[in-house]
Amino acid sequence: MSTPPPSEIILGRRQLYILPTIGGLLYAAALMVLLLAAVNYSSALAYVLTFLLSALAIVSMLYTHRNLLGLQVSSRPPQPVFAGDPASFQVCLKNNQRSPRLAVNLEHAKSEVGTADLAPGEQACIRFEVPTRRRGFITVPPVVVSTRFPLGLLYAWSRRLQLEQRCLVYPQPAAGDLSPFAANSQGWRDHGRNPEGDDFLGLREFRRGDSPRHVSWKAAAGGRGILSKQFGGGYRSSVWLDWESLIDIDSEQRLRQLCRWVLDCERAGILYGLRLPNKTLEPSTGEDHRHSCLAALALFPAAAHR
């Protein structure tokens, strides 16, 4: 699988906002009371306290802003998931400045999903899940980086950051108990020869390269693991998983079924090819092939072919 470079955003002044928190407004109200008392009683120390606290609030404003300014936000490429499973995203915060950044929050959908303390040069990744419902790409949902550090008087936050990182969502596999191999063999087009007869010899542990036709699905359904029926002689076969072979169901259902077959074939170690109206993948096996097939299914144009 090729890894696209993680997209990243460095927070600049124009991406950051800052406002007082409710606590900050209370603080301001207390300052007002202090000031009124100082003016009324002409108390120099009350003035000193008022101005010292005001100055602290102003300095803390700079610190709160600085806690986010220049922060590098990036995301790790997410692993593909099947529709219905939550997609797990990782957003990484990297501190490129020479002072630490503490209590940096990551927010997604208005709720805090994680907090990071970043030493100089440190990077911390925060993982959060987003539910998926449909196949296809979903992009990293917009996240917001925020902080109330150091005094909790001010809340600085970035605008919604849209990172250019997508998560591929495979179709949801059709239910597993429907065995296409036994009930409906139309989907299977044998292209291999079978030179060594077809005498049933018995069952043995399934091995990579065994034909799905020889898998004892009954045994698999009974939970005894995948066993191969042994015939008079082994042969190597490849199957085509064909869009056209599935009729009577709508295209999404077809894709889900094909997805199930891809998974089954891959698990069984059979060479399989995928034939879609817009794309054909030659029979092969392995992780990359599985991904290519599932990606083709995931990205199959919706409602294009009935």
């Binding site: 003035y47 005001s54 100055a55 102003i58 300095v59």
Partner: peptide, 13 residues
């Protein structure tokens, strides 16, 4: 923070 606030507070005072 306190050290940075002091000059500002002095100016305000």
């Amino acid at each position: 923070l306190l050290a940075k606030a002091l000059p500002l507070a002095l100016a305000m005072f």
